[in-house]
C-alpha cells in the first residue's frame, strides 16, 4: 500500500515519544552537572604519582628512573633527578625526582607510562575537570599537584590498587624474610667469629682445683 512504510515510521516515533515518559531506556539523558554517571572503574584520564603513608614527599614511590619519560609517545613528561637520596618503602636509599612535570594539554591518556613503570609509582587518575582559564602553566602539573595518596588510589581503582598493594606486601615480606635470614646468618657468623677470636672464654670449663667454697 502506498505510504505503508511512512506509517510504520510514524508509529515507531510515536512509540518513542510516549515511551520517553514511561521507561528509562527511552530517555537516557543524564542532567550534567547535577547528575553524574557512575564512574566506571577502569576509566583513565591523566596520570598521577602515588605516595605511601602521610607525607607526600617522603612516601613518593617514584625513583626518577625516567623510563616513563622515554616511553611516553607525545613526550609530555619532564623529569629532573635529585642529587641526594631518600629511603623508599622497602628501606633502600633511592634518588627521587627533583621536578616531575606532566603537560596534560599534550598527554593523550594512553597509559603507556603506567605500563612501563617498574615501581608502581605512576597510575591513571579519573579527574577530568582540569580545564582552566590560565593559558600559561595551569595545564603543566608539577610534582605536588600530581602526588596523591595510596588511599586515594584504592578509592578510585579498588581492584587494581588492591592487586598492587598485595604484590608490594608480598615483596616486602620476602625482603623482610631475606633480611631476617641474612641477619640470622650474620649473627651466627659473628658469634662464630667471636668464639674463634677468644678460645679461652669459650673453652669448656675445667673442673676447678679448689673446693666449692
Amino acid at each position: 500500500m502506498v505510504g505503508e512504510g511512512i506509517l510504520k515510521g510514524l508509529a515507531e516515533t510515536a512509540r518513542n515519544f510516549f515511551g520517553s515518559y514511561v521507561s528509562k531506556d527511552r530517555l537516557t539523558t543524564v542532567q550534567y552537572p547535577e547528575q553524574r554517571e557512575p564512574q566506571i572503574e577502569a576509566t583513565r584520564d591523566f596520570p598521577f604519582l602515588v605516595y605511601d603513608g602521610a607525607d607526600w614527599q617522603q612516601g613518593m614511590r617514584c625513583v626518577a628512573c625516567q623510563i616513563c619519560e622515554k616511553e611516553c609517545p607525545p613526550k609530555c613528561i619532564f623529569i629532573e633527578k635529585s642529587k641526594d637520596k631518600k629511603p623508599d618503602a622497602f628501606g633502600k636509599m633511592q634518588i627521587y625526582p627533583a621536578t616531575f612535570n606532566i603537560d596534560i594539554s599534550v598527554c593523550m591518556s594512553c597509559q603507556i607510562c603506567v605500563e612501563v613503570c617498574p615501581f608502581d609509582a605512576i597510575k591513571m587518575d579519573v579527574e577530568y575537570h582540569q580545564s582552566s582559564d590560565d593559558r600559561f602553566g595551569a595545564l603543566l602539573l608539577n610534582k605536588q599537584r600530581l602526588s596523591k595518596s595510596n588511599e586515594y588510589y584504592n578509592a578510585i581503582h579498588p581492584t587494581e590498587a588492591s592487586a598492587v598493594d598485595a604484590q608490594r606486601a608480598e615483596e616486602l615480606a620476602k625482603l623482610e624474610a631475606k633480611a631476617k635470614a641474612a641477619a640470622e646468618v650474620k649473627a651466627a657468623a659473628e658469634a662464630k667469629a667471636a668464639a674463634d677470636a677468644n678460645p679461652a672464654l669459650n673453652a669448656s670449663p675445667q673442673q676447678p682445683a679448689g673446693d666449692p667454697q
Partner: peptide, 28 residues
C-alpha cells in the same frame, strides 16, 4: 562504549591491543 570503557579504560581511544595479545583482561 560503556563496555569499552569498562574493559580498556577509555570510550574511544582504547589503545588495547599489544603485540602478542591484549593489554588487560576482562574485569569481573
Amino acid at each position: 562504549l560503556d563496555l569499552f570503557e569498562a574493559l580498556t579504560g577509555a570510550r574511544m581511544m582504547c589503545n588495547y591491543m599489544r603485540f602478542g595479545g591484549c593489554r588487560v583482561d576482562l574485569p569481573a
